[in-house]
């Protein structure tokens, strides 16, 4: 299927224009001289400068990154365990409930997840702050990690683990030396997914954060409610830039790895 008709070309062009023009406008106007975000008044980077002076935003950014690193790491560990249990655990009591609890958070409206966690934290008298956000984020992102990792595990040839056991590994060694290296790409993408989900989250963080810990999305949301501001544009531009660089780097790295593997294979074929 490689015959692009005019219809395909038009729909792709319009579609990608729709996806990218809003972001482009956002970026362009972060360099606007004027406070008005809709009228171009000349190039300037002053909003970036102002952003760098804004203690509140910087603090929130720091909290957000801290929360994201902690929760995504914890979620990766728990999610990988959950995936392993789901795929390799065999039968155990309450397995259906377990798999239900893994999948439910994926489709649960954020308002409900946030509300229920908040009520729990209040119920047990846990002060809201960084810890509660980390707990909340870990809970829903571990489910995403588990889905990503288990989709890799189901295609994983079980006899590899058995071979490792057969050659003298304890089950833990077999996991560390054989399973983990092979599923590592899935685990890493699970971590990245959890990290982004945590960075992005507004609703659950709003419910579970306290006055001592405000995350960047919460800060942005309360600023944006009052209307459009060039400072937010500047902040958005920075965030978009980071993500873009990240995604492009990741895809280049994986592409290079693929090319290298192909070269190795060819080199190997020559020496046969």
């Amino acid at each position: 299927m490689t015959r692009l008709s005019w219809f395909n070309v038009v729909s792709l062009t319009l579609g990608f224009a729709f996806l990218y023009i809003p972001m482009l406008i956002l970026i362009i106007f972060s360099f606007n001289e004027s406070k008005l975000v809709t009228v171009w008044a000349g190039f300037s980077t002053k909003w970036y400068g102002e952003l760098m002076q804004n203690e509140a935003f910087l603090n929130a950014a720091w909290v957000t990154v801290k929360v994201a690193v902690m929760s995504s790491t914890l979620a990766t560990v728990l999610g990988t365990m959950a995936a392993y249990v789901m795929v390799r655990g065999g039968r155990f009591m309450g397995r259906t409930l377990f798999s239900g609890m893994i999948y439910a958070p994926l489709v649960m409206p954020e308002v409900i997840t946030g509300l229920s966690l908040l009520l729990l934290f209040i119920g047990i008298g846990l002060d809201r702050g960084v810890l509660t956000i980390v707990l909340a984020h870990t809970t829903f992102s571990m489910c995403y990690v588990s889905v990503v990792v288990s989709s890799r595990l189901v295609t994983f040839d079980r006899s590899l683990e058995e071979a490792a056991l057969d050659l003298g590994c304890s089950p833990a060694e077999a996991f560390r030396l054989v399973t983990l290296p092979i599923i590592a790409p899935a685990v890493i993408s699970g971590w990245l997914l959890a990290f982004t989900l945590s960075l992005d989250d507004l609703v659950i963080a709003s419910f579970t954060s306290g006055p001592s810990a405000t995350t960047l999305p919460i800060k942005i949301f309360s600023a944006v409610r009052l209307g459009v501001s060039p400072e937010i544009n500047a902040l958005s531009t920075i965030m978009i830039a980071i993500v873009t660089v990240g995604v492009i780097t990741a895809s280049l790295v994986s592409k290079r790895a693929m090319v290298r593997q192909k070269q190795e294979e060819q080199a190997a074929a020559r020496t046969t």
Binding site: P22, I25, T196, D200, I220, M239, T244
Partner: peptide, 18 residues
């Protein structure tokens, strides 16, 4: 995929100006 990794909030915000 790129927009998917970009902040949801920012993508909604972009439309406020438009």
């Amino acid at each position: 995929i790129l927009p998917f990794w970009t902040s949801f909030l920012i993508r909604v915000y972009a439309w406020m100006g438009i």
